[in-house]
């Protein structure tokens, strides 16, 4: 039955005209062989990037002060992760919102991270062969919360800024076991032991979960500095870039672009807003066939005249 009303952006007159020979199997075979040759050639010509991963060992040796400062922030609960909120921990006032709704807070804390315990105290607890660390850890754990806070405050007044004979220069003040804990964790990281300790924190032996070492790594400035040098930072359109001179995820251009412009670039809810916008735009693409206006653009732009020019020419004859 023919439709009684006709919308040129929805309805078609099905084709009853001429057919031409078409060998679908041959076409598919040619396409696969063509792509195979292109891929093998591109791979031979350009290869692929593979920059070595950063380790806590590398970080603590290359930038021990940055590492120690980050370690202190983890212990004091002032680091990025410690102040993150859901899904890692409960921090009042966190959680990005779209309007009044904070989806991340609705989902709650599902990947619990206690920065001080997971990143500093528990790893140090494995260093049973280092008497100074064991003693400092015991002092810390037997002190009251008030006492701990006093030590942290005092240590923060004179954060170490120099290394001498591979030992951090600590200004003597009443910081209790804190200098020893931070020094101990730095030494541990420099040996490579912290990488393994963080990886197996939540499991007994096997692990394929890098949440803890990656979160610790991302709290310092060293890692971000390396990425910025490679032009990968968020404000450098980094999401669509690749290490080296390789093309990256160019298809993320719009997502990346939104982060660069107002209101997204200045909003504290940037991530939530960008994602909401992208979801909306994606829905528009998926539902184009039903959206008046959007679905009329092809008919008005008339690029189709070019695509089907042989058909329209033969129609005239």
């Amino acid at each position: 039955m023919k439709p009684t009303s006709w919308n040129p952006d929805v309805d078609v007159a099905e084709w009853t005209g001429t057919q031409r020979p078409y060998d679908i199997i041959k076409e598919g075979t040619i396409a696969v062989v063509f792509v195979l040759i292109v891929v093998l050639t591109l791979s031979f010509l350009f290869g692929s990037p593979d920059d070595k991963p950063v380790t806590l060992k590398q970080w603590s040796n290359a930038a021990p002060i940055d590492f120690a400062t980050t370690a202190f922030q983890e212990l004091a609960g002032t680091s990025g992760v410690a102040q993150y909120g859901a899904p890692y921990n409960n921090v009042p006032g966190t959680g990005q919102k779209i309007g009044p709704v904070s989806l991340v807070n609705l989902m709650g804390v599902t990947i619990p991270i206690n920065a001080a315990a997971d990143f500093v105290l528990r790893p140090l607890g494995t260093q049973t062969s280092v008497p100074t660390v064991t003693a400092s850890l015991a002092t810390w754990q037997h002190a009251s919360a008030t006492q701990q806070q006093t030590w942290l405050t005092n240590y923060a007044k004179h954060l170490p800024t120099a290394i001498r004979d591979s030992v951090m220069v600590v200004t003597p003040n009443d910081a209790g076991p804190v200098p020893s804990l931070i020094g101990g964790l730095t030494t541990m990281a420099q040996s490579g032991a912290l990488d393994n300790a963080l990886l197996s924190n939540s499991t007994s032996y096997f692990s394929t979960n890098y949440t803890e070492p990656l979160l610790f790594l991302s709290d310092g400035t060293y890692f971000a500095g390396l990425a910025s040098d490679k032009h990968l930072a968020g404000d450098q359109w980094g999401m669509m870039n690749e290490t080296g001179s390789f093309p990256g995820q160019a298809w993320l251009w719009l997502y990346t672009f939104l982060y660069q412009v107002s209101p997204y670039s200045t909003s504290s809810n940037a991530d939530a807003l960008v994602w909401a916008t992208m979801m909306l735009l994606s829905a528009l693409v998926v539902f184009v066939p039903f959206i008046p206006g959007l679905r009329s653009i092809p008919r008005r732009v008339k690029l189709y005249r070019l695509i089907w020019r042989q058909h329209y020419r033969s129609e005239k004859h």
Partner: peptide, 17 residues
């Protein structure tokens, strides 16, 4: 060898490798 630091085109807010 493409594993050397990339080059970038900057044009206002646009930046592309």
């Amino acid at each position: 060898n493409l594993s050397h630091p990339g080059h970038f085109i900057s044009w206002g807010v646009l930046q592309v490798s």
